[in-house]
Write a protein that binds this DNA or RNA. Structure first.
Lengths: 107, 107
DNA sequence: CATTTATATCCATATATCGCGATATGGCGA
DNA sequence: TCGCCATATCGCGATATATGGATATAAATG
């Protein structure tokens, strides 16, 4: 989602649905403090958190977590950066804040 | 939900799920300005909005809307008041505000 | 007391979501 | 190039959610 325009109703819907699963909210939360939850990552946390690390933390299968990450990314809450064979995920703080503002407004 | 204590994780989950359907968000929105959306109601809007009026507005079946209202009520977002043969629904503003604050905090 | 009205509940069906194993893809290293 | 590793995607069964018709309940009304 473009952070410079207000999100559409369909986008808001996608975002709320993305948040409606506890594991996805957990992931967002972990990404808020990577140094707390992913202290064992070899790569610098500044790039983001490696997908595999998130898999481990959830205890779910790799494919399931990959789908959850895709859902969060489609909603705009996180972005991924591919470095070598790894994919590093991080929060889009601006989008999250805009979502909260929009929700507060529309609710 | 008791507005004097912080909501549990399970309650938050129930609330987000309740919001994850567009019709339920519509209903919450309509109840925000009953005088705009339910101007034709015979009973005073101060008691709340009659379930049947909400049925009409959605265009969905009576049973479906009744289920949506029950979902919103279980989540704590709305309350119902039975007067005669009618059930009047209204928003729980305090709960809604507390939800938004909690979400902003936990997200 | 029978009938109508409002609404919740029950039931069946349809659709969406979740979770997993298997497979595809793409980078990396021997 | 031949695998190995990380991760996305596919296909499928299981579970959850949505929807509407039918029915139950309860109040109002003649």
């Amino acid at each position: 989602m473009d952070i410079n325009e207000t999100m559409s109703s369909a986008e808001l819907d996608e975002m709320i649905k993305a948040l409606s699963h506890p594991v996805r909210r957990d992931i967002l939360n972990w990404l808020k403090q990577p140094e707390v939850y992913f202290a064992d990552q070899e790569h610098p946390l500044s790039i983001g958190v490696c997908a595999g690390k998130i898999d481990q933390k959830t205890g779910l299968s790799q494919s399931t977590v990959s789908a959850h990450l895709a859902t969060l990314q489609r909603a705009g809450f996180i972005s991924s950066k591919k470095v070598g064979q790894w994919n590093f995920y991080s929060r889009n703080e601006a989008v999250i804040q805009q979502f909260l503002a929009r929700l507060a407004d529309q609710l």
